[in-house]
Design a protein around this nucleic acid. Structure first.
Length: 219
DNA sequence: TGCCAGGCCGGGT
DNA sequence: ACCCGGCATGGC
């Protein structure tokens, strides 16, 4: 029944155009960005990543060796720098202990197994895990975030209280398991959220999704 | 100026 | 099983 999901996607794509996500040059950079952007504006994350690049430490080996205190100093613009330095370190240590620091070995797992493995790392929750699986590993795992909730609940497509795994399953069960589609869909929802569905502006008169449908897609 | 940004953890009920 | 405080910078 929810072929509306694809209509919504088509509408957003037409309205905004392709978003060219994820804004990162390598898989490793995507992973670091995914952790740094937790509850944080992307422009701040860019500053932190630029610091890491300027110091030439944006590699698994260098981040494995670097002191947590120095790392914290470099990522300061991203906010929560102490806790995020620990999270980056916990991921890197885990990567070396289990996969020899080799992303290809990590990414050799199938989609579901990779996601579950990532969730074992302290500092990686559902959204960060899905972002890594989709945007770094290039496997079809739909990413749900604050914008997904806000946009879809404001339009009454989903109830407020729908939890992460339910929303994720809703998308995955009603779309083809297509990496490019999942990639673009999530990016478009973020773009829509930033543009027309701000927290402090409950009404979104300009929202291209107005009038798409009037009934919940999930109950 | 205060509020917000592409969450997650740990401790308390 | 939920609920909540803490974590912190930079932009508008």
């Amino acid at each position: 029944m929810p072929k509306e999901l694809l209509q919504i996607y088509t509408k957003l794509l037409k309205h905004f155009g392709p978003q060219k996500w994820w804004p990162g040059e390598t898989s490793f950079e995507v992973i670091i960005g995914a952790i740094l952007t937790q509850n944080t504006n992307w422009s701040n994350v860019e500053k932190a990543i630029n610091n890491l690049k300027a110091e030439k430490v944006l590699t698994p080996e260098c981040l494995h060796k670097i002191k947590t205190e120095r790392l914290a100093g470099l990522i300061k613009p991203a906010g929560y720098f102490n806790i995020k330095a620990k999270r980056l370190k916990s991921f890197i240590n885990w990567l070396f202990e289990n996969y020899g620091g080799d992303l290809d070995r990590l990414f050799a797992m199938d989609t579901g197994t990779l996601r579950e493995a990532l969730l074992q790392v302290c500092g990686i929750g559902p959204e960060t895990a899905d972002s890594i699986v989709l945007y770094a590993a290039g496997k079809p795992s739909f990413v749900v975030d604050a914008y997904t909730y806000r946009v879809f609940s404001r339009h009454k497509f989903i109830p407020e209280e729908t939890d992460y795994d339910e929303v994720k399953a809703f998308f995955e069960d009603n779309l083809s398991q297509d990496v490019k589609l999942f990639n673009e869909y999530h990016a478009l929802l973020v773009r829509l959220g930033k543009t027309y569905c701000k927290k402090t502006r409950p009404l979104c008169e300009q929202c291209p999704l107005n009038g798409v449908n009037d009934y919940p897609l999930v109950k």
